[in-house]
Design a protein around this nucleic acid. Structure first.
Length: 898
RNA sequence: GGGAGCGUGCCGGAAUUGGUAGACGGACUCGACUCAAAAUCGAGCGCCCUCGGGCAUGUGGGUUCGAGUCCCACCGCUCCCACCA
């Protein structure tokens, strides 16, 4: 028989998980009392195994959800699967398994692993993006975009991932030109692709960022940078038509510095600019062709490196500077990008460093038109002057400040018809088509006579055919399926072909949080009343890697659907927590660069390479197979239990910081739970138990509705469900009650605003330490109050242990689940318990702490000053001199300044 | 180059937002229990010291009765963007 005095998590966790499921404890109350609260984790890709990053993510959300439930709110806490994607297709190619089957198996396995963590998830709302009853609505939403003119096809130079054999969106290529998934260097290809017009919402996406005060500043800045709005002007330069040829439209440039127009001494086009051929003179044709060949052979990476020499060739034609009237030469250069602005730049060497370098290299004139205030024009410029200043040599604008001139010149251009102000964005439209099988089919048909025809809504979903041949090469496997591809046109019934590209999986994940509000709805993606009840998400938790990708796309979707009248809010996620990485201890031989598995390191205090005996370098790194530094959550749960894993991951670091996984620390966390177990056990041995709570006082929603006052402040007199305040007799009782109610106040503060689980748990430790010494001397009522409170505060963090001890102590009259600790109300602090008769008053002399004095808690400033001056401390440090100044901070300190 | 953030014991990290720096935990040391080990319990744990104290929150300055917290400069680290005109 197992020793009842020992904490054996394995013996209790599964039992409670089963019991809670029977009681439907985690069901979402769609109606009833209490404010709705939506707690959401970013849903996982079903890779087949849960890793520590998942555990951290879901535990954070779970604790949040559990606390909100105990505080009387109706909580939606769902889970689902971001189930389309390449790994399934690759498994099909490599091992011949069907992607759908592979995905289903992985989901089943991961669902089991999640359930072992004791997460309070409403599994009845589970979704998977690869199920037809989900992707039917992804397709329906795509058609909404199409209908709104926000989805279109165009031929464009796009990012091609040579490993995954598909195109990618700009957001999915990192700063080094690598695919976010495969890590391959992407290539540029000219292809006809589907885009969503996210740029139409660029202003809204930027302008609404400041209002997202519940988001980390960092994420907001990243999004603003990514959208990259800049204000400037579009200016038109007339072309001096090459001898006798037909007149050519003026060339547009975008500039943020119209004030420097008089300094424009040449104009550059991107080598790919469509006008290049027409503007090249016969003498320059060879040179231009050669240069364009050179550029097209370069990778994006080589081309955009900042420190490269700026190469280019003149086209032979001239344009007219619209402000000065000067004829200036036209060039092409590799430092001008075809897909930003107009693909054309006015060259102002004196006031743009790139233009400066280009002009020097190609001996183009450098004309200074802005000088620092109070200085004179330099005869020799060492570099471009890019800051503010005063205009010179600028016709009627000479003498204006640069900022005045920006406005004045733009106004003049508008008046005279050679330009106007313009906003430019770095953001490009979102490329959503993928040449892969395992994704949501794009629901359109290409008809030779009708063009692009949407599949009618009543024919959705366009289902993925199950049996296809996976080659992994070239076009989507769907294109090979003649039976599937050839369909009658929905419009004219003539022969037509289905679109064979599928959607970027980020399309599926851009609206899943909306579906959870109404997961079974089969007439719409969701009903307006359901989505408006639960959304926006109160607390969203996920990794920083989605700071731009998923979070930007989801904001875009929300705004479009709002404009279509499908929902009634502007932003999907009210508060966002970006949790840090979980890192594993990593051993590396600094000479060979080889990684060594922790299991092969015999002495962690002096880690040596088992082969060479060399000293190993120790770091904490993102867990990965190649570094042998992964920690398997299943193993941790088996060894220590889910409660320990949950507590550890929350305690070890603040949630948004990276967390260094260390088995020794996990051990320490287990010891804490064991101490609580023994604490309760010793109470039971002495016959101390808790009385069952009356069900009507316990059930959330059934109890008095959570009032605004109770929500806003922890420090209100005990409400329903709380024990009547015992009248403590002894000093021990008073101290214990102070510890208990101090803990309630502190934990409450840590869970409000910023979620500081680490300090909340340390408060629980302090309380349990205080109870360990005081419980036996305390009166039974006070001891019971302490026990009850400790377990209630512990319940969201260690749900199984808290429930087990709650029941052992007899607090749950477990009928219909009302007696579960997870149906109890969150404790409310009693402010009178925190009151003390005397407080320690710090005595400072000249700002240095010299001691402290016990003084009556309610003493006024004058009394405090008198007490301080009369103290031994003052006597000693003032050496009889009266202080020049006395600063009294009531309740805190007295500072004597001699 | 532009932007955001960070720097506190051996380590992870606290510090009511200007009021006793180092909460809580880990590691470590000593002690109790034990034949022994583990577990558990108790004590210690920033540095220096002549035991009165002195010095300490990356460095240097400033504001203040009082600065980890505010201001200026510098050093170092992390992340994002970057030939974006």
């Amino acid at each position: 028989m197992s020793d009842p005095s020992r904490y054996l998590p394995q013996a209790i966790e599964e039992r409670w998980q089963r019991r809670w499921r029977e009681l439907d404890l985690d069901d979402t109350p769609d109606t009833g009392e209490g404010q709705p609260c939506y707690a959401l984790s970013m849903f996982p890709y079903p890779s087949g195994s849960l890793h520590m990053g998942h555990v951290r993510n879901y535990v954070i959300t779970d604790v949040y959800a559990r606390v909100q439930r105990m505080r009387g709110r109706r909580v939606l806490h769902p889970m689902g699967w971001d189930a389309f994607g390449l790994p399934a297709e690759n498994a099909a190619i490599e091992r011949g398994v069907n992607p759908a089957d592979w995905t289903e198996q992985n989901i089943a396995q991961m669902r089991g692993q999640l359930q072992r963590l004791g997460l309070s998830i409403d599994w009845s709302r589970e979704i998977a993006t690869c199920h037809p009853d989900y992707y039917r609505w992804t397709q329906w939403l795509f058609l909404q975009f199409l209908d709104a003119g926000l989805a279109y096809q165009k031929e464009a130079s796009v990012n091609w991932d040579p490993i995954d054999q598909t195109v990618l969106a700009n957001e999915q290529v990192d700063g080094e030109g690598r695919s976010w998934r495969s890590g391959a260097k992407v290539e540029k290809r000219l292809l006809r692709q589907w885009f969503l017009r996210i740029t139409a919402y660029a202003d809204a996406l930027v302008d609404d960022l400041p209002a997202l005060t519940g988001w980390p500043e960092r994420v907001r800045t990243m999004q603003a940078n990514w959208i990259g709005r800049s204000e400037g002007a579009e200016l038109r330069f007339a072309v001096v038509a090459p001898g006798g040829s037909a007149p050519i439209d003026p060339i547009c440039v975008f500039t943020t510095r119209p004030d420097t127009i008089y300094g424009a001494t040449y104009l550059v086009l991107a080598p790919e600019h469509p006008l290049v051929d027409r503007l090249t003179t016969p003498e320059q044709a060879l040179a231009v062709a050669a240069f364009r060949d050179l550029v097209s052979g370069q990778s994006e990476q080589d081309r955009t490196a900042e420190d490269r020499p700026k190469r280019g060739v003149p086209l032979g034609s001239q344009v007219i500077n619209p402000a000065s009237g000067a004829e200036i030469p036209l060039w092409i250069a590799d430092y001008v990008l075809a897909d930003y602005g107009t693909g054309a730049v006015m060259g102002v060497p004196a006031h743009d460093q790139r233009d400066f370098l280009f002009a020097r290299r190609h001996e183009l004139p450098i004309r200074q038109v802005i000088i620092p205030e109070g200085s004179e024009a330099d005869t020799y410029l060492g570099e471009a002057w890019t800051q503010e200043g005063v205009l010179i040599e600028s016709g009627p604008f000479t003498g204006l400040s640069a900022s005045e001139a920006r406005q004045a010149i733009t106004d003049a251009a508008t008046r005279e018809g050679w330009g106007q102000s313009r906003r430019q964005y770095r953001l490009r439209d979102w490329l959503i088509s993928r040449q892969r099988y395992w994704g949501c089919p794009i629901p359109v048909v290409h008809c030779p006579s009708c063009g692009v025809v949407p599949v009618p809504a009543d024919q959705l979903p366009v289902e993925l055919p199950r049996d296809v041949a996976f080659s992994g090469k070239g076009a989507s496997p769907l294109a090979q399926l003649e039976d599937w591809v050839n369909v009658p046109c929905p419009s004219c019934q003539g022969p037509a072909r289905r679109e064979t590209d599928t959607m970027d999986t980020f399309m599926c994940s851009s609206w899943y949080y909306l579906r959870y509000s109404d997961p079974l709805c089969d007439s719409l993606p969701f009903r307006r009343e359901a989505v408006d009840q639960w959304l926006p998400v109160d607390q969203y938790v996920g990794g920083i890697e989605h700071a731009i990708l998923h979070l930007l796309y989801s904001r875009f979707f929300t705004k479009v659907l709002r404009d279509r009248g499908l929902l009634g809010f502007d932003e999907p996620f009210e508060r966002l927590l970006t949790q840090g990485m979980v890192q594993g201890i990593t051993y590396r031989n600094p000479h060979s660069g080889r990684y060594v598995a922790p299991a092969d390191v015999s002495d962690p205090a002096d880690p040596r390479d088992p082969q060479t005996g060399e000293r190993l370098e120790v770091t904490y790194d993102k867990m990965s197979k190649s570094k042998y530094n992964g920690v398997d959550p299943a193993r941790v749960i088996e060894t220590y239990g889910a409660d320990t894993a949950r507590m550890f991951i929350l305690f070890k670091a603040p949630p948004e910081k990276d967390l260094e996984w260390d088995d020794a620390d996990v051990e320490g966390q287990f010891r804490f739970l064991q101490r609580i177990w023994r604490l309760v056990d010793s109470c039971l041995q002495r016959g101390l138990t808790l009385a069952p709570v009356a069900p009507e006082a316990a059930a959330p929603g059934a109890a008095a509705p959570q009032s605004a006052a109770a929500d806003a402040s922890a420090v209100v007199p005990a409400a329903s469900g709380a024990t009547p305040a015992p009248s403590p007799a002894s000093e021990t009782d008073r101290e214990l009650r102070r510890a208990v109610h101090g803990a309630i106040t502190a934990v409450q503060a840590d869970l409000e605003g910023n979620l500081q689980f680490n300090t909340a748990i340390s408060e629980l430790m302090k309380l349990s330490n205080a109870m360990a010494t005081a419980l036996e001397q305390a009166s039974p009522e006070v001891a019971r109050e302490a026990l009850r409170t400790l377990l209630l505060l512990l319940a969201p963090f260690a749900p199984h242990l808290a429930e087990e001890l709650w029941q052992k102590l007899g607090a749950g009259a477990d009928a219909g689940g009302e007696g579960s600790i997870h149906r109890q109300r969150w404790p409310v602090a009693d402010p009178t318990a925190l009151v003390r008769d005397t407080i320690p008053l710090v005595i400072q002399v000249k700002g240095k702490v010299r001691g402290s004095l016990d003084v009556p808690a309610d003493a006024d400033s004058a009394t405090l000053e008198r007490l301080a001056l009369a103290s031994d401390i003052a006597l000693k440090w003032l050496e009889g001199q009266p202080p020049r100044r006395v600063i009294v901070v009531p309740g805190k300190l007295v500072n004597l300044v001699p």
